[in-house]
């Protein structure tokens, strides 16, 4: 029998700790597949965030560092500047990248650090129990926006990718989604692009991934995928931003 799909060398054979229907597992796999397809596993250094993906290094078979909440891009800057020949990426959620780490994000991007960023946008804080995130949609109910996000109380969903696109140091930004297999393939192509840009010394690249969080959206896994397609994409349109 012909084997048409196998686990990447960059991915450990371990049981997942993520909730049923969570997008992190798919995103982890995509990163691992891209690293393998580019043949860079032995020179890749990943930086894990604080958030649900805090133990991303338990899944990836290459060098990794933890970073304090929001500081992944500062840590990655230190690593990449010391080892410019290595491939350095951060994997960050919306709270990490667009709330507590906004400053680090903007300035790493503005310096044009030659780093790739995988940015998981699931519109909610997962690890801490489903609180309001900078990317939470208007009307979306969370543990800390009980009646739904309002512009008066909480302001608007933060479109950090569009903001970063304004910076001349940024080379590439694309927003993708994990809502169905076709979009997952596009996500993989975007991650490949972000890593290739780094290999070619083109500067800061970021892929924003709209990713399901059925648990804190209060939906089934299938409904969560539909919610991305029908609701979330209206606020966060897919496609190449820069």
């Amino acid at each position: 029998m012909e084997k048409i799909f196998k686990r990447s060398e960059s991915l450990y054979d371990v049981a997942t700790h993520y909730c049923p229907g969570c997008g992190h597992g798919i995103a982890h796999r995509l990163v691992a597949e891209v690293v393998d397809s580019l043949g860079i596993r032995e020179k890749t250094i990943g930086v894990a965030p604080v958030g649900c993906a805090v133990v991303a290094y338990d899944y990836w078979n290459f060098d990794c560092s933890e970073a304090a909440h929001g500081r992944a891009l500062a840590v990655a800057t230190g690593i990449k500047r010391v080892r410019p020949e290595k491939i350095v990426f951060t994997y960050q959620g919306d709270g990490d990248l667009a709330a507590i780490g906004t400053n680090e994000t903007i300035h790493a991007a503005n310096r044009g650090e030659n780093i790739s960023v995988v940015f998981i946008n699931n519109a909610v804080y997962g690890m801490t129990g489903g609180q309001l995130a900078p990317t939470t949609l208007l009307g979306q109910k969370t543990a800390t926006s009980i009646s739904g996000r309002t512009k008066k109380e909480h302001g608007y969903p933060l479109k950090i990718s569009e903001m970063l696109a304004l910076l001349p140091g940024v080379c590439y930004i694309e927003r993708v989604s994990l809502e169905n297999p076709q979009e997952v393939l596009k996500a993989k192509r975007a991650i490949t692009q972000a890593f290739e840009n780094q290999i070619n010394n083109l500067g800061f690249s970021l892929v924003e991934i709209l990713s399901p969080c059925p648990t804190y959206w209060g939906l089934s896994p299938k409904e969560a995928l539909d919610w991305i397609k029908l609701v979330m994409r209206k606020e966060f349109p897919l496609g190449r931003i820069k």
């Binding site: 250094i45 230190g78 690593i79 010391v82």
Partner: peptide, 10 residues
């Protein structure tokens, strides 16, 4: 945190 990263890289 940059120092953290640089030190982590040796």
């Amino acid at each position: 945190n940059m120092v953290y990263g640089a030190a982590a890289a040796g």
